[in-house]
Amino acid sequence: MSVHVIATGESFAFTPENEAWAKTQLAKYPSERKASAVMPLLTRAQEQRGGWLTKEAIEYVADYLAMPYIRVLEVASFYTMYNLKPVGRHVIEVCTTTPCWLRGSDEIVKACKKTLGIGLGETTPDGEFTLLEVECAGACVNAPVAVHNGAYYEDLTADSATKIIEALKRGEAPKPGPQIDRQTSAPVGGPTTLKATTGGNA
């Protein structure tokens, strides 16, 4: 991976709310170890920047924590959740790690690519959608899953994935969570055990 951090020419600074929040993060660590707060601060900077980090944002965070720029860039390039290139308004991250893959993530990826007309790691020409492949999203029990701007869409099929994207394109907000008849990660089709109280333990 060749990392190209993009300089936008826009200066970056935390909003007053984020600034106040950053202070609460710094308070967690001894003052000479404030570099420990680099990850939450980068995350917040990325959110404020609209989903990706610029050279200015990285340098702002580095200055904020009195760290050399390269140290912050190392962190930002190590973790895949920091984006160093522009992303669309909607970032769709499809998990393709083993459990999701066994449950058909290939189909989900195919459906997303087809609906959006872009490949993995690409952004639509209108700058609306970015499609990313990610490692385990941590929701294997509801595999296959995809994440849209932090919201988990679970138990996907090619059909439901397509529908969600179409809805997003129309500006709607499809309901996150399992896309089949299922309550969170409870068994499909309703409870299978502990259906009734036995009374024996009263």
Binding site: S2, V3, I70, R71, L73, S77, F78
Partner: peptide
């Protein structure tokens, strides 16, 4: 401190800022 390792795993690259 201007040298660093960017990326991870097989994609790790040593470079200056």
């Amino acid at each position: 401190p201007e040298l660093g390792a960017l990326g991870r795993g097989e994609h790790m690259e040593v470079t200056t800022y």
